[in-house]
Structures are given as structure tokens and as C-alpha cells.
């Protein structure tokens, strides 16, 4: 029995254990991003403000990488905005999935991270309420872990030293890899993830940071031509 064929009652939201590990992973990501941002001389309160209100880890990493390479504030901010521009698309992808008042639509648009959007899409076959619940459960664990992690990252500061030594730099991409590999179960999403990754890598040497990821979003257009079926049997939901 595939995931999609299981009765709806069996597949409720994510279990407490899964959410606990997500919280843990978010803390790890918070620590990783904070240590990168602190590394280019960002004060503690600025790190906390950025992580809490901008809520864009890749944006912070992009900013820090331009500054670390000797860049000025303007190109660094431009890189952060370019990398973060995908959040506009993610916010767009969340519109109209369920009826929501204005304040909730603002919250959804602001909080639409990759993992939360992926969870909502995954839960959608089980109904709007399941999608809404999955989205906000993920958001809650994600933001809480992220803020706690940033705090810990600041407290640890120099203790961690070179974050690459303990593999902190893969924490961020590793937290997204689940959404990517599980997309390989469906034909159209397989095209989307493979073409997206390929486009981003091909464009990286020729474009400023951020643009490759933004342009890679366009690979979802050719993916539309592929059937929305799983590889083995028709998509049943």
C-alpha cells in the first residue's frame, strides 16, 4: 500500500516525534546560520532581529558570504534579497489553499518556508484542515527552533570556532533534502527537482549569488508537461 492509498484516518498530521526532530533540526540550522553571520561581525541583537523578523536563513548566509568576500553593504543586501525572492514565490504558492482571514493570509505569506509549504502540499490530499494544521505545526517548530538555535549560536560564539569542522554548513541543505528526494516518487515533481538543481548549478558560475536559485524556479514550467503520476502506479488520492 502506497502512502497515497492509505485511508485518511491512518495518516493524521506529523507525529510528536517527527515534530520534535524538526525542532531539533531547526535549532541546529539556527546555530549554523548565526555562527556564519556572527563571523562577519554582526552584533547579537542584529542577528536575533534578522532571524526573528526576516526569517530567511539563506538571505543571512548570502549577506554574510558577500561581506566575507570583501563586498560592501549594498551588494550584500542585494544578494540577500535575490536569495530571499523565492519566498515571494513560496508565499504565492500558498495562496488560496484554504479560506483564511486577512491576518492569517499575512501570517501565511510571511511564514511560508520551504519545509512548511512542502508539508502543506503533502497534507493537502487529506483536506484543507490537514494542510492548514501541517503548515502551522511546521512553522511553529521551525520558528521556535530557529530562534532558540540563533540564541544558542550567539552564546556559543567563538567556542564553535570554524563551523565547517563539525559539518554545520550541511545542516541547512540537509534539512531540505527530504522534500527533494520524496519528490522523486512522482514524475512531474521529479522533473521539477532535477531540472531545478541542474539549472541552479549551470547558472552559478555566470550569475551573481541568488539569481540562479530564482531562475531555477522557472524549471517548474517544463515539469508541467510531465504526468502527475507516481513511477509505479497511477497517483491515487
Amino acid at each position: 500500500m502506497t502512502e497515497a492509498q492509505r485511508p485518511a484516518t491512518v495518516r493524521r498530521g506529523k507525529g510528536a516525534f517527527d515534530l520534535g526532530t524538526l525542532l531539533f533540526a531547526s535549532i541546529a540550522v539556527g546555530i549554523a546560520v548565526t555562527s556564519i553571520l556572527s563571523g562577519v561581525g554582526t552584533s547579537g541583537w542584529a542577528v536575533m532581529a534578522a532571524c526573528t523578523f526576516a526569517y530567511s536563513g539563506t538571505g543571512e548566509v548570502a549577506y554574510a558570504s558577500v561581506i566575507a568576500a570583501g563586498g560592501a553593504m549594498t551588494p550584500a543586501l542585494a544578494a540577500a534579497m535575490l536569495v530571499s525572492s523565492r519566498f515571494g514565490l513560496l508565499a504565492l504558492s500558498m495562496t488560496g489553499r484554504w479560506k483564511a482571514p486577512l491576518w492569517e493570509r499575512i501570517a501565511i505569506a510571511h511564514l511560508a518556508s520551504e519545509v512548511a509549504v512542502a508539508a502543506a502540499i503533502e497534507a493537502e490530499p487529506r483536506g484543507e484542515r490537514a494542510a492548514r494544521r501541517a503548515f502551522f505545526e511546521l512553522v511553529l517548530c521551525n520558528t521556535a527552533g530557529w530562534i532558540i538555535g540563533s540564541g544558542i549560536g550567539l552564546a556559543l560564539g567563538d567556542i564553535v570556532g570554524n563551523t565547517a569542522t563539525i559539518g554545520l554548513d550541511v545542516v541547512f541543505p540537509a534539512s531540505f533534502v527530504g522534500a527533494v528526494v520524496n519528490s522523486l516518487r512522482r514524475k512531474d515533481s521529479t522533473v521539477a527537482v532535477l531540472a531545478g538543481a541542474a539549472a541552479a548549478l549551470v547558472l552559478t558560475p555566470v550569475l551573481p549569488p541568488g539569481l540562479p536559485v530564482l531562475l531555477a524556479a522557472a524549471t517548474s514550467l517544463p515539469a508541467m508537461a510531465a504526468p502527475s503520476a507516481t513511477w509505479r502506479k497511477p497517483f491515487a488520492s
Partner: peptide, 27 residues
Amino acid sequence: TRLLLLMPLSIVSAVVAVQTFTKGTTV
């Protein structure tokens, strides 16, 4: 609706690829 389901996947995959296989502007 279908495009909006696929687009985040393209973006997420691109982010993972860039964070894993690039350093600055080199692969």
C-alpha cells in the same frame, strides 16, 4: 495550482544544489 505545487520543489532543489555543490561562483 499545479504550477504552484511544482515551483517550490524546483526552488528547494535549487537551494540544496547551490548549498551543496557551490562555493562562491564556482561549482
